[in-house]
Design a protein around this nucleic acid. Structure first.
Lengths: 117, 117
DNA sequence: ACCGATATGTAAGATTATCTTACATCCACA
DNA sequence: TGTGGATGTAAGATAATCTTACATATCGGT
């Protein structure tokens, strides 16, 4: 595998985060419904961590999942005033309407670039 | 399993994010060194997603991992991750399409205020 | 409506990863 | 030195994932 490095890096942050939280592998394993050796292997980078587990780890250690996977916390810059207006409008929509809109958006965009991308 | 719901939710966001990005499962599979059926099963919530994969998905779809796992978005002007997605899509629209959309939004919102809630 | 092309869902055996238990090692401290 | 807690690791049992193949949509053009 190629993202072995990435995995190792995640593993290292998980281990460090656990230590900083003052928890033992056993305590963590219990909270996560895992066996202790699994936690050990995860921290060694020998086992993958599922997305759900990652989320659970983040909660237990009180860190962000973004940190655990090595991402910088991201911010979306919406600098077009018209988009800000649109965003405000979007926030007023019901979830259901938002759903419809999101689907409509894909169609609209397809019409815009016509084959590009 | 207990986090089945969490998994399904992650799967749903992955699917939605892919669609908004305009990519097919096949294209995604290729970029991630996966077979297409794996992507299909992941989006159906039948397969776990590893932390590395999650990170890769986030990069391809241009969304945050925090959004994908359902965490509260980290300090954004627009606090609904789905809106961030929509906003990004809006930026890709032509001015003309954006105009139409803004008008459509008003109509949608009018519909919301009536029966629902 | 029909067609071909592309996208997606799904089945089944082969393959690989993970689990579970047990034992080994390390380290702090009395 | 020796005891207890924490962690690493091995090995067979178990479970998930892969890979290939086929089935079912879905969409655009005719």
């Amino acid at each position: 595998m190629e993202d072995q490095d990435h995995r190792k890096a995640i593993a290292a942050r998980l281990k460090e985060a656990r230590r900083l939280s003052g928890l033992s592998q056993g305590q963590v394993a219990q909270q996560m419904n895992l066996h202790r050796p699994s936690v050990s292997e995860i921290e060694a980078g020998n086992r993958r961590v599922s997305a759900e587990e990652l989320s659970h780890f983040a909660k237990i250690y009180d860190v962000s999942v973004a940190y655990l996977v090595g991402d910088a916390p991201d911010t979306l810059a919406v600098n077009d005033p018209r988009l800000q207006l649109a965003a405000r409008e979007l926030q007023k929509l019901s979830p259901d309407s938002l759903n419809k809109l999101l689907k409509a958006l894909a169609a609209l965009r397809a019409g815009d670039d016509e084959g590009a991308n």
